[in-house]
Nucleic acid binder design. Structure first.
Lengths: 329, 329
DNA sequence: TTGTAAGCGTTATCAG
DNA sequence: CTGATAACGCTTACAA
């Protein structure tokens, strides 16, 4: 790799001058600029970001920490972040935390060691020193914490909507699937659903799950219909579980939505391709990712901006696993 | 952030000594080591990877370039790469190329600018200077090129298997979905299927698609049944398209697999949760990711290893969108 | 308008 | 066993 020295020598100028033309800083004569530019071209020179980063104590790198890219909700988030960052010439160091506090801490640490200028994190522990003492801007994505910068959707409201719509469509033997207790968003959804159901005086059962994994989703679906065979409505903690429930219901010969209605959460891309297509509470994942990146970039330019907490809308996305409301509402 | 100087001062030694204890290189007296270690702990010191990287001209970073993390096949790959890398203390800079040569080149360039020690890339243009002149090890993932290090599955064989199994199960009005012409793996699958069908003297139709996107998949599925309504067997270019085809077939009132059989490709996590569950040609994505990372790490340690091309098995994964072979075979 | 040189935080060489 | 110090490739005062 050619260095700035090589370019300087090749162009017959000093490194300072080369630096000036690269960064468009300070005066440089048109002719020398030309010389330098040809030298750069001829040597295929590109600046070493590491050296830059060392001197300026900041890079063009940001850290992105997500629970598990294998859960289809997160790639959407990631893609949004990446697209926005890419357009602003930032690159991403990426890690999966598996919702594990230790892995999370490790990653954040290496992010810092690599001089990232900011981090976007989807974490259940935003209130730890890991983030508090980070010294660089952090945006919490899909999660939130007191007054810290964050982009998230209102899971509680989503849960409420799901419960309300399901009740409006006539289900009275509802089973709510409670996601992993350690995951904040899962808890919110659950709480929202429970609140709504309670306030409407509708009884319900609960199935507790401990992960969002594809392989285990089927197990819980089975458990659900074994323990509560009369279930005529399922509020799932996300679309993966909802898909498993749908699969199991169909396998048991139940008609969906006639015998049992199902509402998921997230609206992952495959949901609309299921048969019947999944009714769900949509989170605008891609936009959330983009928004979080945009927010981080703002924070990078100006630490003190007003609008640091962005709540995205959660929308009832009616498809085919729920009945038409006219029939019942 | 504390620097090595701070630690040295705090411990009353020179920076050289601190460096020695950090890197466990050279002699250092037990007592001084202790002093240094406490200093490190008290100051919460962690080495600046950027400075290290600058001096050593190599980092603990690798670049990962994937077409689109939003396609459920790639997160599996990415996860495999990440887990293996993480266990070996490497971090990942990540980018989506969208199969776009320009974006790809840009990303690779910034990878290099950030001193990555190696790259893992899923690209359709492995034979360009971008990779040839990179100067650091590259492993091609899910793609391959002459004799360059790579980890991939035999798409052609997969296509053959799909065609063979479908024919063995009685379909005679087969439509093959040809994926984007620019994507090598899609082409291989298609070729394999066509070869097999031709050699068996079975006529078939072709639907050409131009992307793997969820939103467009539905369009092609519609087109398929409009143009070839008598289709009784579909060999799809991947599971996303297969899912869309299944969805459309069901919507049209066709029975699957009785009226039309469907075989996908990849075996993404959701495939087994569809109803009927999708029969597909499985690629061991996660393992491929891990293998590519392991290979890259080997290459990093020793440029000249023998086994640089790893072909992973492709397996016919029989589920419910194909008929039982006994009935027809 | 341009060049010199210090400094970013490390590692490694070479004396001591 | 330990300490100075040059070097990694860049940016930025400061001088010229």
């Amino acid at each position: 790799m050619a260095t700035i020295r090589d370019v300087a020598k090749h162009a017959g100028v000093s490194v300072a001058t080369v630096s000036r033309v690269i960064n468009e800083t300070g005066y440089v004569h048109e002719d020398t600029r030309k010389k330098v530019e040809t030298a750069i071209r001829e040597l295929h020179y590109t600046p070493n970001e590491v050296a830059r980063s060392l001197y300026k104590r900041k890079s063009r790198l940001i850290g992105l920490l997500l629970p598990d890219i294998t859960n289809p909700f997160f790639p959407e988030l990631a893609r949004g972040v990446e697209d926005e960052m890419q357009e602003n010439d930032f690159r991403i160091i990426f890690g999966n935390s598996d919702e594990n506090a230790n892995k999370e801490k490790e990653y954040i640490q290496t992010f810092v060691q690599n001089n990232v200028v900011g981090v976007i994190a989807s974490t259940n522990h935003p209130d730890t020193d890991t983030y508090r003492k980070l010294g660089i801007p952090v945006v919490f994505l899909d999660r939130t914490a007191d007054n810290r910068p964050s982009v998230y959707a209102d899971g509680r409201e989503g849960g409420r909507i799901a419960a309300h719509e399901m009740a409006a469509r006539g289900s009275r033997q509802i089973t709510v699937i409670q996601g992993p207790a350690s995951i904040r968003t899962a808890l919110d959804r659950y709480q929202g659903a429970v609140d709504m159901l309670s306030s409407q005086g509708i009884a319900f059962n609960v199935i507790q799950t401990t992960s969002f994994s594809f392989t285990e989703a089927g197990i819980w679906a089975k458990e659900l219909f074994e323990r509560y065979p009369d279930t005529d409505g399922v509020i799932a903690s996300n679309d993966i579980v909802a898909t498993a429930v749908l699969h199991e219901a169909l396998r048991l010969g139940k008609k969906v939505p006639e015998d049992v209605q199902i509402i998921g959460f997230d609206d992952i891309p495959l949901s609309s391709l299921l048969t019947p297509a999944l009714t769900t509470i949509r989170q605008p994942a891609y936009d959330m990712g983009r928004a979080s990146a945009a927010l981080l970039i703002q924070l990078l330019e100006n630490e003190n901006i007003d609008h640091r907490i962005i709540q995205m809308p959660v929308t009832f996305t009616e498809r085919e696993t729920t009945r038409k409301v006219e029939q019942y509402g």
